[in-house]
Each structure stands twice: as structure tokens, then as C-alpha cells.
Design a protein around this nucleic acid. Structure first.
Lengths: 191, 191
DNA sequence: ATATGATTGTTGATTATTAAACACAATGTC
DNA sequence: GACATTGTGTTTAATAATCAACAATCATAT
């Protein structure tokens, strides 16, 4: 799948460059950020930056790809895990992950965030859960699609509010709430 | 005075190795700490450690030397600065420095700390202030020595208490207190 | 328009760090 | 005491990051 693993130097370089860009993104737009700035804050030679990334946008994309992949991993763990693990615990893990990366998530998922990225994440969740619900129920695919349009934007709303509130509520509470609301919805349609 | 300046890599390596050792020193004695541990926490190749230091003790010595040099710098700034700067502000700077390096200072200056190092610092302060006081007063050198024996251990006591209290009082407050107590002392002898 | 200054993207030579391996010493376990 | 395990100190070739320089591009103000 990939070449050799990065050694410590590469891992460190990428990490500080990412942190540096995230820090800058809290203050200004990506197109107002210079490569030079990123390197100064990261304390990394500019030449080294270009050895890994083409420009600011490339770096941001890589960061987004990573976040996306991680969310994907958490989601697949949720749907594929054995039946004996309560669903709440699995969803909780996703929110713990979001909390750990709150700075970045706030930037990308908030109102002023990256719309393309949000759509990308939502589509991922969408495909996962459409299958889940239509699989073992009498609900038509058409109905399910509307339910999920509602569910997805609803979840995003909850996440945004949670981040805005500086994650005062525990990840478990949010997970529980979301599980209740989403499972409740399908119950409503069934009857 | 010295050769070429270290580049970014060297600076980073030394920094993380120092932080790593300090972290370990909070849990155990220097002679119970392995070089291997230090490198693992710092995420630095063991070979790189040996490129800069001989062993744990050498690293600790270098850390102490640095702290010593910095305290020295702050002290000399205090005694050599122009007369218009209030002494309290100068002493405050020293305590701000201690606060910034509280972890390390706590380790080295506390009751269980390194006695040799404490003595070294005290001697430094001693020489500075003996001159200061005998210079423009009628106090004999013999008297001054006793006053300072008192002053120095007294100051160390205050610093230790301050560190034990997790530096709740501001650096300025401590500076003010120490100035009051030490200048007060010489007044007492004069009369 | 033109001049001034700052950022860019790339380069070449140099240096620091890396992973991996090694024989050896220290440590703990049965 | 013999045993396996773990840390030590050093070496190797490979590679990543460094600094410094460069012409080219962009920004801003005059």
C-alpha cells in the first residue's frame, strides 16, 4: 500500500507543520497565510516544507484527509464491531476523538468552516447508515433517505453546538443523545 | 567564546532530552533513570543522545549549568542595572524566571533537591551581595557575612515555600517581601 | 508606471539524526 | 551458579533537515 514508514524526523516535521497551520487558521483564512509564516512558527526550514507539501492548500488538504480517514475508521469500527458492544460506547469514541482534535474540528466543522469537507464527512456517514437502516426493516429506501437527510444535518448541528459550548457535556452524553434521537426517529416511522 | 551556533535540529534535540529528564526526575532519582528511558520519552534515537551527552548525569549537569548561568545573568542584571530601575522590579524578574522553570527549580531547590547545586547558587548570590552591602556602609565585612548567612538561607526558605505553595503569590509579591526583609536587616544593624 | 520590499519555489553543499546491528555489562529469576 | 532479559556504548550507511543563496513573482505605495 505504501512505501517505507516515515522515521522520527519526518513524523516530527509533519506534526509541527500541521499544528502551526491549525494555529494560524484560528486567526486568518488559508489564502492569507504564507508558507513562510507556517515554517517560522513550526521552526522548520522552508525547504523542508516543500519537500513534503506543495503549498498551504496542500498541507490543509492533507490535514483534512487525515481527519476524514480517522472519522471513517471510527465509523467503520462502530458498524462492524461485534453485537455485544453497546452502540453508545462506539459513538462515544467518535466524540472523544473529536474532543481530542477540537481545535481542528471547530475550524472545519463549524458554521464558518470548510463546506466541502463537511459535505464529504456527511456523505460518508450517509452511505454507512442508509445501509444499516434499510437492511433489516420495512422502510423504503426513499423514506430512509429523507430520514437521513434529517439525521445527518441534525447530528452536525449537535456537534457544532457542542463545540461552540467548548465541550462542557461529556462525549458519552452527546453519544447517548444522538443514539436516542436517531433510533427514536426510525421508531416513529415504523409505527 | 564558542563555535558555530547549533542549528534547529540540535536545539530541538537538546530541548526534548532536557524536558524528558526533568519529567523523569519528578518520579525517580537520577541514578534510577536509564538513558534508554530518556530517549524513549523524548522520541530521540539513543545514538543521538550519546552525540551530545555522556550519560544521565552529564545531561543533568548541563541542565544545572544552564539554570545556574541564567540565575547568574538575572543577578548581574540586578546589580549592574542603572539606578533608576527600582530594585523590586529587578528581583521580580528573577522570580518570574523561576516561575517559568518551576518544575526544574522545584526539583533542584527543594528540600529533597540537589544540595551541591543549592550551595553553588547561594555562593553566587553571596559574593554578589557581600560587595553590595559593605561597599557603601559602615558595616564590617565580618558582620556582613553573618547578615548574609542569614539572608541567603532565609531567601532560600522563602523560595522553597513559594514553590511548595505552587507559586500562588505573584513574583512581584515575593520580590517585594524579600527586598523588605533584606533591606530591613541592614537597617537594623546600622542603628 | 515604477520602484521597493517581501514571499516564493528551487537549488547545492553540509550536517544531524536515524535505524539497525553489535559485543559487552548489569540485572533479575529460577 | 546458570539463565535469560535488559540496558549500554559504539558503529555503520542511509537519509532528512539544515543554511544560504538565487531569480522569479507578487504586493503596495509613491
Amino acid at each position: 500500500m505504501k512505501g517505507k514508514k516515515d522515521d522520527r524526523r519526518v513524523i516530527y516535521t509533519k506534526m509541527v507543520l500541521r499544528e502551526s497551520l491549525i494555529k494560524l487558521l484560528e486567526k486568518k483564512n488559508i489564502s492569507q497565510i504564507y508558507v513562510k509564516e507556517i515554517c517560522e512558527i513550526a521552526d522548520i526550514n522552508r525547504g523542508t516544507f516543500y519537500a513534503h507539501y506543495n503549498d498551504q492548500f496542500d498541507l490543509l488538504n492533507k490535514i483534512q484527509d487525515d481527519l476524514f480517514e480517522n472519522i471513517k475508521m471510527h465509523l467503520s469500527a462502530y458498524t462492524n464491531d461485534d453485537i455485544h458492544t453497546p452502540p453508545v460506547d462506539m459513538v462515544e469514541k467518535i466524540f472523544e476523538y473529536i474532543k481530542e482534535n477540537s481545535k481542528l474540528c471547530k475550524l472545519l466543522l463549524s458554521d464558518g468552516g470548510d463546506l466541502k469537507f463537511q459535505k464529504r464527512v456527511l456523505t460518508l456517514v450517509y452511505e454507512k447508515s442508509i445501509n444499516e437502516i434499510t437492511k433489516n426493516s420495512s422502510i423504503s429506501k426513499e423514506d430512509a433517505e429523507y430520514i437521513h437527510a434529517f439525521q445527518l444535518t441534525g447530528c452536525l448541528g449537535i456537534i457544532q453546538k457542542w463545540l461552540d459550548d467548548d465541550m462542557k457535556k461529556s462525549p458519552y452524553f452527546i453519544a447517548e443523545t444522538i443514539i436516542k434521537l436517531t433510533t427514536g426517529l426510525t421508531e416513529l416511522i415504523r409505527h
